[in-house]
Amino acid sequence: MTGMIHKFSQNGYYIVLDVNSGAVHVVDEVFYKMLDLVQPPFAGDCPEALYAAFPEISREEIGEYYSELRELYEAEQLYSPDYYDDLAGKMISAPVKAMCLHVAHDCNLRCRYCFASTGDFGGTRTMMPVEIGKMAIDYLIKYSGSRHNLELDFFGGEPTMNFELVKEVVRYARSLEKAHNKNFRFTITTNGILLDDDKIDFINKEMFNVVLSVDGRKEVNDRVRARVDGSGCYDSMMPKFKRLVEKRGDGQYYVRGTFTKFNKDFAEDVLHLNQEGFDQISVEPVVADPNLDYALTWDDLPEVFAEYERLAKILLERKKTGTGFNFFHFMLDLDQGPCAVKRLKGCGCGNEYVAVTPDGDVYPCHQFVGHEEWKMGSVLDLSIDEKKKEMFVHSSVLDKPECKKCWAKFYCSGGCNANNMQYARNILTPYTLACEMEKKRLECAIMIKAALDEWSTEG
């Protein structure tokens, strides 16, 4: 039941987040410092220690500060109680509503940081047969119960290497929507090399969202995103991405890049992508073995943090002049967002979300594919390992002791179970390097909200 706050100062703003209510307060410097000196329950009169701590401020004004602090506390907007253990009963085995379909375990690129071992996930290079794709749809319908909205992501490897299957699976799923009262939302992630007008038109007609993989500046991109012969891919894919986005109109898309130790000035890559005409941008830190030359390590964090703050300031200036763009990880809905249950559950991998390999094997998510011990079923015999599913049911924030104590838990939802497994050897133990970057991004996102609020008030 204990309340929790997180306070930080950035870009001249003093900000206090009340963790359990989600309230965000922009305060002045005295109020900010005062929070270090007093603890709830804030009963009775202003403590003498506060008067003594600020001798330059009149007793009357200090009393005013304290009464504002008490008012927030009593309104449950500061140190508000943690009722969330009451939701533990809602962490149950749920219908499967999202599926990652690995239509190709092969790729025409050999990106150095690829978690999928450059496309084959550590196995043989294979394509999913159409029949397996259709069985996957049957599997999703069977295990989705009464869920209406279903998501299917065409993934790889490189999914455009098996595009006829993509078309067939979409047609098949659409043919079943009405009879089963389902709404399929298709998405696709592509490196763009094989895009042509036929594929672009199909994607723009059928895909609810599309992710276009590019890392930013040509020299940055081509250093790590190389073809099989070692040559870069930037010049080939960028015109195709531009054409897709131009023809897509208002449809959702993201250009999505990875930054590594080689480009800790990644704000330049974000700006480059915007300069090239994209306004929906995500550039994210690589997750890699710390011994690799491109991996980000704890030593890199000060530079990465400074760059996030620099990007936040640039984005603010751009929004001010009407030339803003969306940077994925600085987007935050402070007024509503998802429900508390969703925030505690997170991605739902292994419970509401599964991945299917070209052979029809079912895994908790795309990041677990290739790790045989995590296989949890097959679309061939419509099987699912309920014991494994139950393990993921109990991998919510409430089950992660470190996460329960963290101020960011309702925004990151316990992080990525696959990364936890890979780097902390336990799905319930957070991969703390990623946590630190997530927390910095959240602080930047909240600061942007504070600054925009100030400007709109002044404007």
């Binding site: 009340d18 989600g22 965000v24 307060h25 305060v27 005295v30 504002e68 007024d335 609020d453």
Partner: peptide
């Protein structure tokens, strides 16, 4: 409030 501005309606 004089020293605090709350930005949002604030999740449940």
């Amino acid at each position: 409030m004089k020293h605090v501005k709350t930005l949002n309606k604030a999740m449940k």
